[in-house]
Deep mutational scan, measured.
Amino acid sequence: FSITQFVRNLGLEHLMDIFEREQITLRVLVEMGHKELKEIGINAYGHREKLIKGVERLI
């Protein structure tokens, strides 16, 4: 299971460039909250919320 699959499953594949540029893996994403996601350029609250909720389902 990769970050690419995870992001695609959430319908947020347009954010993949950010994850690749910042070298974010699923392991790193698990540790990130709204503040960190915003810092790397994910400005939409809804997108950040989707990512965080998606990660919570993985754990």
Rank of each mutant, 00 (worst) to 15 (best):
Phe1Gln: 10
Phe1Gly: 09
Phe1Lys: 07
Ser2Ala: 09
Ser2Arg: 07
Ser2Asp: 14
Ile3Pro: 02
Thr4Phe: 14
Thr4Trp: 12
Thr4Asp: 11
Thr4Pro: 07
Thr4Lys: 13
Thr4Tyr: 14
Gln5Cys: 15
Gln5Ala: 12
Phe6Pro: 00
Phe6Ala: 02
Phe6Trp: 07
Phe6Met: 05
Val7Ser: 03
Val7Cys: 11
Val7Pro: 00
Val7Met: 12
Val7His: 00
Arg8Met: 11
Arg8Val: 10
Arg8Trp: 08
Arg8Asn: 07
Arg8Lys: 14
Arg8Ala: 11
Asn9Arg: 13
Asn9Gly: 12
Asn9Pro: 03
Asn9Thr: 13
Leu10Tyr: 03
Leu10Phe: 03
Gly11Asn: 08
Gly11Ser: 06
Gly11Leu: 03
Gly11Asp: 07
Leu12Ala: 01
Leu12Glu: 01
Glu13His: 09
His14Thr: 10
His14Glu: 13
His14Ile: 12
His14Pro: 07
His14Leu: 11
Leu15Cys: 05
Leu15Thr: 02
Leu15Ile: 08
Met16Trp: 07
Met16Arg: 07
Asp17Gln: 12
Asp17Asn: 11
Asp17Pro: 15
Asp17Lys: 13
Asp17Arg: 11
Asp17Ile: 13
Asp17Val: 14
Ile18Ala: 04
Ile18Glu: 01
Ile18Phe: 06
Ile18Leu: 09
Phe19Leu: 07
Phe19Arg: 00
Glu20Val: 14
Arg21His: 06
Glu22Val: 05
Glu22Phe: 09
Glu22His: 15
Gln23Ser: 12
Gln23Tyr: 07
Ile24Ser: 01
Ile24Arg: 02
Ile24Gln: 02
Leu26Met: 13
Leu26His: 03
Arg27Asn: 12
Arg27Val: 09
Arg27Gln: 12
Val28Tyr: 07
Val28Met: 15
Val28His: 15
Leu29Gln: 01
Leu29Ala: 02
Leu29Ser: 01
Leu29Glu: 00
Val30Cys: 13
Val30Ser: 14
Val30Ala: 14
Glu31Ala: 14
Glu31Lys: 15
Met32Lys: 02
Met32Gly: 01
Met32Asp: 00
Gly33Ser: 07
Gly33Tyr: 03
His34Lys: 02
His34Thr: 02
His34Asp: 05
Lys35Ile: 06
Lys35Cys: 07
Glu36Ile: 04
Glu36Ser: 05
Glu36Pro: 03
Leu37Asp: 01
Leu37Phe: 07
Leu37Thr: 01
Leu37Arg: 03
Leu37Ala: 01
Lys38His: 08
Lys38Cys: 09
Lys38Tyr: 09
Lys38Phe: 09
Lys38Pro: 01
Lys38Trp: 07
Glu39Gly: 10
Glu39Cys: 08
Ile40Met: 08
Ile40Leu: 11
Ile40Val: 09
Ile40Ser: 03
Gly41His: 03
Gly41Thr: 03
Gly41Met: 04
Gly41Leu: 04
Gly41Ala: 03
Gly41Gln: 03
Gly41Trp: 05
Ile42Ala: 02
Ile42Arg: 03
Ile42Asn: 03
Ile42Gly: 01
Ile42Gln: 02
Asn43Asp: 14
Asn43Cys: 14
Asn43Glu: 14
Asn43Ala: 12
Ala44Tyr: 14
Ala44Lys: 13
Ala44Met: 10
Tyr45His: 12
Tyr45Cys: 07
Gly46Cys: 15
His47Gly: 03
His47Asp: 15
His47Cys: 12
His47Arg: 03
His47Trp: 11
Arg48Gln: 04
Arg48Asn: 02
Arg48Ala: 05
Arg48Ile: 07
Arg48Asp: 03
Arg48Pro: 02
Glu49Asp: 10
Glu49Lys: 12
Lys50Pro: 01
Lys50Phe: 06
Lys50Ile: 13
Leu51Lys: 01
Leu51Met: 05
Ile52Gly: 00
Ile52Val: 06
Ile52His: 00
Lys53Asp: 06
Gly54Phe: 05
Val55Tyr: 07
Val55Leu: 11
Val55Ile: 15
Val55His: 03
Val55Cys: 14
Val55Phe: 09
Glu56Phe: 08
Glu56Ile: 11
Glu56Tyr: 08
Glu56Arg: 15
Arg57Glu: 12
Arg57Ile: 11
Leu58Arg: 03
Leu58His: 07
Leu58Thr: 04
Ile59Tyr: 10
Ile59Thr: 11
Ile59Leu: 11
